[in-house]
Design a protein around this nucleic acid. Structure first.
Length: 320
DNA sequence: AAAACGTGGGG
DNA sequence: TCCCCAAGTTT
């Protein structure tokens, strides 16, 4: 275990962040008091996910993070296994046609992620000697890698001390520290500051803390129906202490789907994925009744590089 | 900075 | 049933 009790600059910074986040709460809790319970809870309750096993490597971690962007763990699992078996290293994927990545992506959703993971693999093969970079800035420069994914890779794959702020962690901090039921709609500077302030001092503990807070949010401190009875820090949770007040601020605007271009794109791509050979326009025309929207959706897929138009009005997943 | 971007499961 | 949500990124 680590020194969870000695004071440090990080503690003072955390205190400031906490006060800043909730000035009404006069009792400044020690950030350090959260580390041990959460990390110990993680040691006892963490799921055995394939990308957490040592053999996953940085490439496995990175691939899993792409797949997990907005897609639940259970749906990712089978695709991840096939993907890593087929393309065990970045160079293996880089050697493939991008369309094969899109096909293997299956129904995970947001297929541009498949294209970006493929492009990232090519960048890694060309610019990084086939090794997933271990610097946050270099990762951030890769297609499809944003602030969260870069942080996840350096933390989970390389064991670095880096704040990892995903939707789960944001919710845990919002409740446990800020006393709010939900975090703001968009990640704020205050949240980043708080996440940095709460980070344990040493790399190993910081890395575990990142994974642990994420897992706590995913399994216990969930968006709906949180299981506070099973939470290791329920006694210190600012939201609980405040009587679990309902969320104030603006509600998150839901995403509509039925009837949108996204739905049409999804149907078009499903047809293309299913066929190894080029598909005639007439087959694509079956998926949507409205010709204007249908054409717009197809154009969008082409301009996104997800679909390749051929001579004679035929289409296929991209070869190059 | 708001909006686009897929898909399916659970409350 | 319907709505909400899921390890975000890009433009």
């Amino acid at each position: 275990m680590t020194a969870t009790t000695d004071p440090s600059s990080a503690t003072a910074e955390a205190a400031d962040a906490v006060v800043g986040a909730d000035a009404a709460d006069g009792a400044v809790r020690s950030a350090r008091a959260l580390h041990a319970p959460v990390v110990d809870w993680f040691a006892a309750h963490a799921r055995d996910l394939p990308w957490r096993r040592p053999e996953a490597g940085a490439w496995g971690v990175m691939a899993s993070e792409f797949m997990l962007q907005q897609t639940p763990v259970n749906r990712v699992l089978p695709v991840y296994e096939e993907w890593l078996e087929r393309w065990p290293r970045p160079a293996d994927l880089a050697a493939e046609a991008p369309g094969e990545a899109v096909r293997a992506w299956g129904r995970l959703g947001y297929p541009r992620r498949a294209l970006r993971l493929h492009a990232a693999a090519r960048a890694i093969a060309e610019r990084h000697g086939g090794e997933v970079p271990s610097e946050h800035a270099q990762l951030l420069a890769l297609p499809g890698v944003g602030e969260y994914t870069a942080a996840a890779v350096v933390s989970f794959a390389y064991g670095q001390r880096h704040a990892v702020l995903d939707t789960n962690v944001r919710r845990v901090f919002a409740r446990a520290v800020s006393g709010q039921q939900f975090p703001p709609n968009a990640t704020t500077a205050a949240e980043r500051r708080l996440a940095r302030a709460l980070l344990p001092d040493d790399d190993a503990t910081a890395s575990r803390w990142a994974a642990a807070t994420m897992e706590l949010g995913a399994l216990v401190c969930t968006a709906r129906g949180p299981q506070c009875g099973r939470c290791p820090i329920a006694e210190q949770c600012a939201w609980q202490l405040a009587g679990a007040p309902a969320h104030e601020g603006p509600a998150r605007r839901g995403q509509s789907y039925a009837g949108t271009d996204r739905q049409v794109r999804g149907r078009l791509l499903a047809v293309l994925r299913a066929s190894k050979d080029p598909v005639p326009q007439s087959d694509l025309d079956q998926v949507w009744h409205e010709p204007v929207q249908r054409a717009r959706a197809l154009d969008g897929l082409v301009s996104d590089g997800l679909v390749e138009p051929l001579e004679g009005g035929r289409y296929r997943l991209p070869l190059t």
